[in-house]
């Protein structure tokens, strides 16, 4: 097995890391915004399933992956609208609504898939990559990193955009205040409900992009339950990131690297039981939780519906 570690193999592993990490990155960024505003997006898995289904349909019938990603974004937005109405406006329990949304996403997309594609299993063509001049010819990383579809670069840019939005804009300040000190925000004359409402919508839109990435880019296919827990991983990443989008990105691609490494260990023939190999990504996350989560800072009002005193 010594000759297995060819440039092509290493390139495939890095591609695998990107494929596994990108949906987590997009959904994790969304969850970060929601959490910073004080709204726990427990229903991320539901957002992503709706978006994966809508994204697949958008790309299939629209004939363009961009239409698929747009459809996914809109689906995530629509699901988030439901959550915003229930959790922010009507102040229902965020945990209960989140669980409900997951069940709804799983059930509804399964039924719709069965009705729509019960006798067929259509697939999407592969999304073409954007070869960066010069860099795409580099060994190993040329194919795996510098020939990725445009949405990959959009995801990288989104890390910076979300970081700047949260840290350097008035809107970001309002969002963080809505999660930390909603009463202070209210006292300053800024609507907590409106701020949280909008943050949840942005959160859903980003999670929608992540879900659509799964069906449109990662697999070109929709299958019930295809998120396989990605929504939950996104929540963990957002919590580990402690409101820092860059750390969410690092965590997402670290998880992707561990997932890819599990494949590599099998192919290289490391004498470790397969079950243990598959634990690797989760062990990495648990290690990170133990190492960093004790210092993790969650917004003080996370998960707590806001009520003005005396109302």
């Amino acid at each position: 097995m010594s000759g297995i570690l060819s440039p092509e193999f290493l390139s495939a592993l890095i591609s695998g890391m990107v494929l596994a990490g990108m949906p987590l990155l997009l959904a994790g960024l969304g969850e970060t915004i929601g959490e910073q505003a004080g709204v726990l997006g427990l229903g991320m898995e539901g957002y992503m399933l709706f978006a994966a289904y809508a994204g697949f349909n958008g790309a299939l019938y629209g004939g363009s992956p961009w239409l698929g990603l747009l459809a996914g974004l809109i689906a995530g937005l629509a699901a988030a609208l439901l959550v915003a109405i229930l959790c922010v406006w009507l102040r229902l329990d965020q945990v209960v609504v989140g669980i409900g949304l997951i069940l709804l996403g799983e059930g509804l997309t399964s039924v719709l898939h069965a009705v729509q594609f019960g006798d067929t299993s259509p697939r999407l063509p592969s999304v073409p990559g954007l070869a960066i001049p010069g860099l795409s010819r580099l060994p190993v990383v040329g194919d795996s990193v510098f020939s990725q579809p445009v949405i990959f670069w959009l995801g990288i840019v989104l890390i910076l955009v979300v970081h700047l939005l949260l840290r350097s804009t008035r809107w970001g300040l309002k969002v963080r205040a809505a999660g930390d000190r909603p009463e202070a925000l209210d006292a300053a004359g800024v609507g907590v409900t409106r701020t949280r409402f909008f943050a949840v919508l942005v959160s859903g839109a980003l999670a929608g992009l992540g879900g659509a990435y799964l069906s449109v880019v990662s697999s070109g296919f929709f299958w019930p339950f295809m998120t396989n827990g990605a929504g939950f991983m996104a929540i963990v990443l957002a919590m580990l990131g402690r409101g820092r989008p860059v750390w969410v990105g690092v965590g997402a691609f670290l998880f992707g690297a561990c997932v890819s490494m599990a494949t590599a260990l099998q192919l290289v023939g490391v004498d470790v039981p397969t079950d243990a190999v598959f634990m690797l990504p989760f062990l990495a996350v648990m290690t990170a939780l133990v190492a960093f989560a004790r210092r993790s800072y969650l917004p003080a009002a996370l998960g707590v519906p806001y009520r003005r005193e005396g109302s």
Binding site: I4, S6, E8, F9, S11, A12, L13, S15, G16, L19, A20, P23, L214, S218, S219, G220, F221, W223, P224, F225, M226, N228, V259, S260, T263, A264, Q266, L267, T274, D275, F278
Partner: peptide
């Protein structure tokens, strides 16, 4: 070359693609 996608990844098309790409990359 032998690779398993997951512990019960019957429906995980994205992971199926990822692992297969790696196997093809081994030749």
């Amino acid at each position: 070359r032998l690779a398993q996608v997951g512990q019960a990844a019957y429906a995980d098309a994205a992971a199926g693609k990822r692992v297969t790409e790696s196997v093809i990359a081994t030749g």
